[in-house]
Amino acid sequence: MLRATAVSRSYGETVVFENLSIDVEPGEVVAVIGPSGIGKTTLLRTLALSLEPDEGTVSFDGTDAWEVDDPDRLALRRRIGMVFQAASLFDAPVARNVEYGLRVRRSWPERIRAELRSLVAPSGTADAVRDALDIVGLDDKRAQHVESLSAGEAQRVSFARAVAYDPDVLLLDEPTSDLDPRNTAVIEDAIAEARDRRIGVVVATHDMYQAERVADRVAVLLDGGVTEVGPTERVFDDPRDPRTRRFIDGELVY
């Protein structure tokens, strides 16, 4: 479905990755693992179509996203949901945050009408918003302002915000690295729920245990490229690339 083929990206003289290929299919969870600072975020931004690769292609259902014009690329981008390491919520109530993706997909006259209506008579929360908050167990907090949330709850709202508009692909950039075990478990359950809904999930993480728990496939990102992609169990039990083996052994000992 979403596929990066032989992509390269540099910042100035620094090569982040070269000749990297990765893909995700509906209903599948792919974990990108690798040490911090190796370029997982840059890879996810490339997959999110917000960063153009220097070389290579990113295609969505066979359409090369950087060959089409801006409105078409926007349409492709709108099939992708993204959760960042920091929750990055808007200064507004929870429900307002979660419905943001739905709001920007409406036409301007519709949006203005809806805003005016809500000034006169606050309307109920959209079903899609309640459903998305339900996935992360926060439906009861929908009227609260985000300021009153804990860091874990904020990240869960950020997750709900990315699934509320029913994307085909969900990109998660270290979604639980700042969270306690309980909130981490909620996010991991939500990832499983997304997979059940046939969403293709790519999760970047430096936590190999998390990759083992949630992923169907693992891509190991080391030294400016993917050293190995394969089914989770196979990669962890029997890594074929010696660099992958060293990385996994080192981490597992630690």
Binding site: S50, F84, L89, G101, V104
Partner: peptide
């Protein structure tokens, strides 16, 4: 305004104008 907020608006399907409006509101 935190750049993450602008990125979030874009990543959630907002146009450049949407992102600018979010930043103005923040």
């Amino acid at each position: 305004v935190d750049e993450d907020v602008r990125d979030a608006a874009r990543a959630l399907g907002g146009t450049r104008l949407d992102a600018a409006l979010v930043v103005l509101k923040e």
